[in-house]
Design a protein around this nucleic acid. Structure first.
Lengths: 339, 339
DNA sequence: TGCAAAATAGAAAACGTTTTCTAGGGGAAT
DNA sequence: ATTCCCCTAGAAAACGTTTTCTATTTTGCA
């Protein structure tokens, strides 16, 4: 691969001159410039970004760390993010921690070693090692999304979860449901806790006693939804009349279980969910859901990150954005109330 | 951010020694090693990967260039790819050309400048500029997926398309359909052409004359499917009885149109499709499709790339892998044959 | 005890840029 | 005609590593 030196030799000028022709922010005589450009073309020269980055201490690359690459929710966040930052010349390195705290730390270190200019993290862990945490908040431009991370004081963007969950469950209550189960993710993640809180809020409001057996913790994946479905649907005596699935993938798994058992939604069981498990909203059954907006999360996070990058000062900018969500009624629940 | 020099100073050794402690492939006295490691910890030192890459001419980063980040098909390819290469210490830079040939060239240049060790490209364009083409085949480890690129002689991995399309349409024919329309992508991409060829093959086999008005070219996206739906469904006199959608997103858009017009699948119109538009196969309507296997494409491409990277010789390895596909019958078509 | 060889560590060059500092040459102003 | 300044371009240092080469100490063996 050719270097500046090769070009310089070919154009019979110094490397400094070639560099200046390329960067363009230094006067070069027209004839010299022409010779240099010609040499660049003749040699098929492509600047070495690595050397550039070393010298300039900028890689123009941002990292995105998500807990699950299989979840369209995070993919959409990444896409929107990319769209926002690309106009400022940044590129995206996407990595997945697979909800594994160890792997997450490893990937953050990789990002650090690659000297990315900034990163967006949807944390898998609840906290980081103190050194890494202080490191992150001081050295690098970081924005957290979806969940927060103890001890990392940086900006964050997420979607309202608790109130939305409450509304969702309240809707079930208003339809006469009282045996309402919930399937959700890890006990420790911000979103899980918030959604559970909303679920409890609604139950309490309706004076329905909370029942341990109706709450299932697992992961934010299809497997969990499927297992939850198997468990709840096989409760002979007290099978719930409705289930609240705390995320899109869980819903998918749950519906799979419903299908397999030979039941139907909403005739045999009502389902409400967080986020649309189907991209295509016209498909059946049309779900009653909390409409999430990953694209907005990505956009906000992207803009926040760009702001931090511009004033590369280590301003302690701890803005916390919580985007509003709303619920959309579908046909996945059945009213038990006799009119 | 700390450097080797800082660590060396703190540990009262030379930078060379610190470097050797870190790399580990050179004998260092136990006591010295201890001092160095302690200094590394004390200073929160993280190696500068940029400098490393400059010196070693390896970035341990691979690029993936897809035409559409919104398409789960490519996302799944990227995921499988990542799983394969991560065990060898590589990371993935994912970029989307948005089916734009200009943008594609720009991104390839970015990959080149970032000195990625290799790249996987699902080409948007049919060919590249000759310089870039020769450059790619000679300098970098490249694997093409899904489509091929004129003049770029490297390995490629894709899925069988023509025969599968033929089988799909043949199935419709066997059910008595004769007015069979097709909605597909760009006229120029490998996959579009192959799928159209398969469509024609089946028609010819059944002695059904090919009809221009039943073939719609567009993009591989929902928009095209939707527009195609509007067009075909509004054909009063000769509305097709079946439609072949050449990709998952087109199908989604088409179904949207069907829904909007107030028709039903398969009662009013039969649909067959390439790739599952719904991740969840138990959803209704269950589509009759060509089952694609993006994960396999990613795995094969990943392994091929790793092989090229290992023997970093510029072996002209032009292996072309074409993975077999099969069709899965669902309930999205209606038989017109009276038993 | 002495000497060769092995073990360990430092100095310095190199990777390919960018940028500062220096210098030559030519035009304008006196 | 002389001086001064501006325009242009080259030399060299720097970014943070790795690695070669060299120097010193330690060890082993006669």
């Amino acid at each position: 691969m050719k270097t500046l030196r090769d070009v310089a030799l070919h154009a019979r000028v110094s490397v400094a001159t070639v560099s200046r022709v390329i960067s363009g922010d230094y006067p070069v005589k027209e004839e010299t410039r022409r010779r240099v450009l010609e040499a660049i073309n003749a040699l098929d020269y492509h600047p070495n970004g690595v050397a550039r980055s070393l010298k300039s201490a900028k890689t123009y690359t941002l990292g995105v760390l998500v807990p699950d690459m299989a979840n369209p929710y995070f993919i959409q966040i990444a896409r929107a993010l990319e769209a926002v930052v690309e106009s400022s010349g940044y590129h995206l390195l996407v990595a997945s921690s697979d909800e594994d705290a160890e792997k997450e730390i490893g990937l953050i270190k990789v990002f650090l070693e690659k000297r990315l200019d900034g990163m967006v993290i949807a944390p898998a862990a609840v906290s980081l090692s103190p050194e890494l945490a202080s490191f992150l908040s001081s050295t690098l431009s970081v924005v957290l999304i979806d969940r927060v991370l103890d001890g990392v004081e940086v900006g964050s963007v997420r979607e309202e979860s608790r109130q939305a969950s409450k509304l969702l469950v309240r809707h079930l209550v208003s339809q006469g449901h009282r045996e309402i189960a919930m399937i959700t993710g890890r006990k420790l993640t911000t979103t899980s806790l918030e959604r559970e809180a909303g679920y409890r809020d609604a139950l309490q409001e309706a004076h329905i006693p909370f029942c341990e057996t109706y709450l299932m913790w697992g992961d934010y994946d299809q497997e969990t939804g499927y297992l939850g479905g198997k468990r709840f649907l096989s409760m002979k005596d007290r099978r719930p009349s409705a289930v609240f699935c705390a995320n899109n993938l869980i819903t998918l798994g749950f519906l799979h279980a419903v299908d397999e058992v030979g039941l139907r939604v909403p005739d045999d069981i009502s389902v409400v969910s967080f986020g649309d498990p189907f991209e295509a909203t016209f498909m059946t059954p049309k779900m009653t859901i909390v409409v999430q907006n990953p694209a907005d999360v990505g956009r906000f996070a992207g803009r926040m990150l760009l702001r931090k990058l511009e004033r590369n000062s280590t301003v302690h900018d701890t803005e916390e954005v919580v985007l509003p969500t709303e619920i959309r009624l579908g046909s996945s629940t059945r009213s038990l109330v006799v009119n």
